[in-house]
Design a binder for these strands. Structure first.
Lengths: 183, 183
DNA sequence: TTGAACTTTCAGAAATTATTGAAACATATT
DNA sequence: AATATGTTTCAATAATTTCTGAAAGTTCAA
């Protein structure tokens, strides 16, 4: 593995985007590096290629490991651990979604639920509670929906995505079908 | 508007989550405050209620304004500007998605496209380019899809979300319908 | 059991990001 | 034109996050 300008720009960009996507720069860089590398790479080489400290590499790999995005391999007669990124691109996307849900949705949903259980003390609180309930319901819907989408096969998801806003037509059709059956 | 414990916990939580959702603490707090307030609030009061500086309030409101999430109102015989949060909860969710797309997807897609245009210099680069193309295609699909979903009416979106993974059944059905028509 | 080869941890340093508050700016009123 | 009432900007400061590197930990072969 050598850092050509092409690979560098990809890796560094992924590092920069990392913070927007919910992981730090180092994690982003390491992940990007492993994605484009055909060969597993050892922690030392990762640090060298990226110009970061050994400790930082270790922490980054630990995090990626906890997300099950990298795997370790051993080579005969070598005690080093060689890292590579496992799984398809869908796996990665799924992990990113899942992690974000954990950090962005779950704590909020939990708090909103608590607030909804409270007794409103006055008019203002009653209004606030109503708006909070709206937010809660929306977030819960989105969460459940994305979760159910994640359980679909990549093929199904692809079909669905290709459909785009055409899904609207399918829905109308379903509506008609349903009301006919009910009648 | 008074800060009861209920409202405080909501507002402060929204502030904490802000950084995860792509805005800073102050922006999150101001937005949360305005969401649960029936009455428009002036900048001074916002600063006082949240315990933050006047300058910080101004910057937060500016950002929320640029996202078209808050609006200004004037009261007769009063030169202060009163802020309130306009739009439904869907509008907010849409804005959040849009902003995130701009910051998280667009720059990456643009870089990936550039890389895809490059000529691979060797075997490694060819492999890297292939993986990068996979990522690009996935991100582009997701981006286009979420965009088309955003153009649907809240009602349609709700139907779709209620369907959950049941959408899978509808797809199968549509497939059959299509192949019959083609035959 | 020792030591070589490697990994992990974590306190302090560096870098980044958010916040304050005083000065500049804007606008309506007298 | 002077003043009163508001808003915005931005340099300095504070808070937070990330990174380093030396020390501690782990594992294995001899």
């Amino acid at each position: 593995m050598q850092m050509t300008p092409m690979i560098e720009s990809f890796v560094f960009h992924f590092g920069e985007m990392g913070s927007r996507w919910g992981f730090n720069r180092t994690v982003g860089q390491i992940y990007a590096l492993l994605v484009v590398s055909e060969e597993p790479i050892c922690a030392n080489d990762i640090g060298e290629l990226l110009g970061i400290s050994r400790g930082n590499v270790s922490m980054g790999l630990k995090e990626l490991g906890s997300w099950q995005l990298v795997q370790v391999q051993h080579k005969a007669g070598d005690r080093k651990e060689y890292y590579f990124c496992r799984g398809t691109i869908w796996d990665m996307a799924n992990k990113v979604f899942e992690e974000r849900r954990k950090r962005e949705m779950d704590p909020t949903l939990s708090l909103l639920r608590d607030i909804m259980m409270d007794e409103a003390g006055n008019k203002h609180e009653a209004y606030a509670q109503q708006r909070i309930t709206e937010i809660h319901d929306l977030l819960e819907n989105i969460t459940e929906w994305t979760q159910s989408l994640q359980s679909l096969s990549p093929e199904k998801l692809n079909t669905l995505m290709k459909l785009g806003s055409g899904v609207s037509k399918v829905l109308e059709f379903t509506d008609k079908f349903r009301s006919k059956k009910d009648a």
